[in-house]
Design a binder for these strands. Structure first.
Lengths: 239, 239, 239, 239
DNA sequence: CATGAATGAGACTTCATTCAT
DNA sequence: CATGAATGAAGTCTCATTCAT
């Protein structure tokens, strides 16, 4: 049974892993380039070079530049949701689960700052559309959190002053903002590539010091978020 | 009392306001167009048409498109900071001030959704650069909040588990996220202008229902944020 | 006899000198700006500023930018022809006249380098058209020289191997080239104005030393030109 | 003998010539368009159309419009220098070499009037910058001539009244001026393309007759130049 | 006459995408 | 499948010229 020809041509069984690997290589390249340059400033040719493929090859794996962004989002988000889900599953009780979620999220940011940069910063470059597109996967993330909170409310651990979905969103806002602050406070662009010309405004803008409260240890942020979320700012009146 | 001569000669007293007014008209137009299309998709020609001026006129008032965005940011942010500062100043005691800040911020969003959309969504389209550029004015906003919190910590009203600047940032994150959710949940684009082609992904994407927890009364959000921030999620142990 | 109103308004008899003076001011400004920036890079607004008038005013005196160049040419050329004519008229005999012409031309260059720069360099920026337009006045200059040569040929002072008009043109070519070399070798642009961006070619081009044979005393050039023109390069056989 | 594989892989031997050929096609097109319209009036789109490529293709071969001019200059100048060098090398003795140079230069003009037009006329449109840029290659040309003259001075064939570099420059000025006169005197623009709107001056300017002394046989010019250069105008006193 | 703000046509250049090899 | 040269649509910005004051 000679398959070589058809297999070589159609190349499905053998190509699939290869294909998937190259697709991943392109996504990784896109992640780096988007993080470095921003979505709009990133050129498809940059990504191709970074991935070590020809420009046209990108289009064999992705419909277009937008699709590349979306697939990148999907890919990374899937991982994030997986990890957050695991973190929650691995904890017992709403309080512990909430804390686990917060810790896992910020750990993720710290561990994969490039991916985080894309998710937290560059994705917003198409935000409206992204959000128009993304609420699905994005909603999943929020739902994990909302579920934990709702459970806590059901058990009486958590107050139900705030509807769980909104509480979830607020907590995510806190995490997102802390992530953003930390990411922006990090060391400047790496490597030889110039980091996309800043908004050419003529107004001189030298090396500014990191803005206030931007340069902190992200692992401590988990404590802060947890503290604020669980006990709030108000000092509990001593009995 | 003949003033006309001097006025005609100086031609300043009359010209300056005109100039300022036209500048404002352009900023307003830019606000609408950016909110509608997003920064990158917005064409300078669109803004000119919306402002009722010629393309070239834009460049008599702004260095370039980026500068237009930055000036818009400055202009709107100034207003925001003014209002938030006033709100805080008008309240007595850290708790009231914190609440006033929260309420004022969300009221602002509700009252000026177009400006809010630009500040919350579109500005992020150049976020990295924007943030590189903006931390000044942006920091002011955070500082107002941080000051309130620090004061509360000093009086003993607020716990000092969380450093004030970080607490401020987290609270801002909550507000920002709620604002974003609400803005995205609002009615679709208005008017005849097509709302900037959505990410052309090929994947059909009809009219989706507003994502979960996105369609709410923003005035209630103030309560939620205040509740979460002040007392936290954990039910205070009775007795 | 109150004339003020009508005179001020219609202002003809009194305006004419004023008008001429302002026209001259604009021409002077144009000369400087053209010399500094080159015709194409020179902006009408630059010239207006340099002349201390409003942009629109230029158009009350000149049809358009091209006309400004042409009028400048006419104005300066008239002067040049006057001077050269006088120089020739002031000399006796073809040999002396030829020498006088050469000396006068190079002296002109040395004395009015800005005007010279325009005539020698910038006018060529529209050369083809300029020459299409200018041959008239330009021809006058050549004719002065040709007349001298023809006279010399008639008297037997000059050989008639070369037709006078062509000899005239060749001599002018020599003068023009020496003028060009000297002008280009002169000190760099003066004042704060940047001298029009050089051809943006990316190739680095630092401060080059003046090209070979470019930095010389122009007054000596008269001797060289005269020597070459009169006796040629070949050493006359002795005996 | 299977070469196809290596050739296909390297894809160089076949691609390079293609690339060079297209580059040349663009340069040729630019030569024609610049000659016809002048550098500033020439639109990149014109050149692209003339070359039969898309606008963007130009930018795959040249950095920008300026670079195109510079490369054109380099390319043509290289040829010119080659030919002039050969001409000089092919002659024996300073006198013959000088004559050879003169003849070769004018022959070049006559044979390749389009290239000559660009080199002699249009390049001057950016002259100051061009000369700022070009003195290198330009200096080479002068150096060839200066070397011949210096040699002649050394042998005693030529007088050393005039320093060789300046003599070279003057002779070049003569050649350049004759070339210019001849080029401008040639038949009007060819083909359907309108020859770039003449300086719109309002002043009517019909078809002027070629200016005096502009319409001559360029091959005779070599004799004139040689005569003037070698023996000068003054009639040698008969023994 | 003078002004100078406004105009708007048009050029250069970029870059996502295609398609012949 | 992969390549990467070619395409060409489209956008930003400039600047000569006009005209209402």
């Amino acid at each position: 049974m000679t398959v070589h020809s058809s297999e070589a041509r159609a190349g499905r069984a053998s190509a699939d892993p290869d294909r998937a690997a190259k697709r991943e290589r392109i996504l990784d390249a896109a992640e780096r380039v988007f993080a470095q340059r921003g979505f709009y400033a990133a050129k498809v040719a940059d990504i191709a070079r970074e991935a070590g493929v020809a420009d046209g090859t990108i289009y064999l794996y992705f419909k277009n530049k937008d699709d590349l962004l979306i697939c990148l989002f999907e890919s990374r988000m899937e991982r994030v949701i997986q990890i957050l889900g695991d973190a929650v599953a691995g904890a017992a009780g709403p309080r512990a689960q909430l804390r686990a979620f917060v810790a896992a999220y910020l750990t993720l940011i710290a561990d994969q700052p490039t991916a985080a940069e894309v998710l937290t910063i560059e994705l917003r470059q198409s935000t409206k559309f992204m959000r128009e597109y993304s609420p699905q996967r994005f909603g999943e993330l929020l739902r994990i959190l909302a579920t934990v909170i709702a459970a806590g409310q059901a058990t009486g651990d958590f107050t139900d002053q705030v509807p769980a979905p909104h509480a979830a969103r607020m907590i995510f806002g806190m995490l997102d903002e802390m992530a953003l602050a930390w990411l922006l406070g990090r060391a400047p662009r790496r490597r030889g590539q110039k980091p996309a010309p800043p908004l050419a405004t003529g107004r001189e803008r030298g090396k500014m010091p990191a803005p206030h409260g931007t340069d902190f240890d992200i692992s401590r942020a988990a404590d802060w978020v947890a503290a604020l979320v669980t006990t709030g700012l108000e000092r509990r009146s001593p009995a």
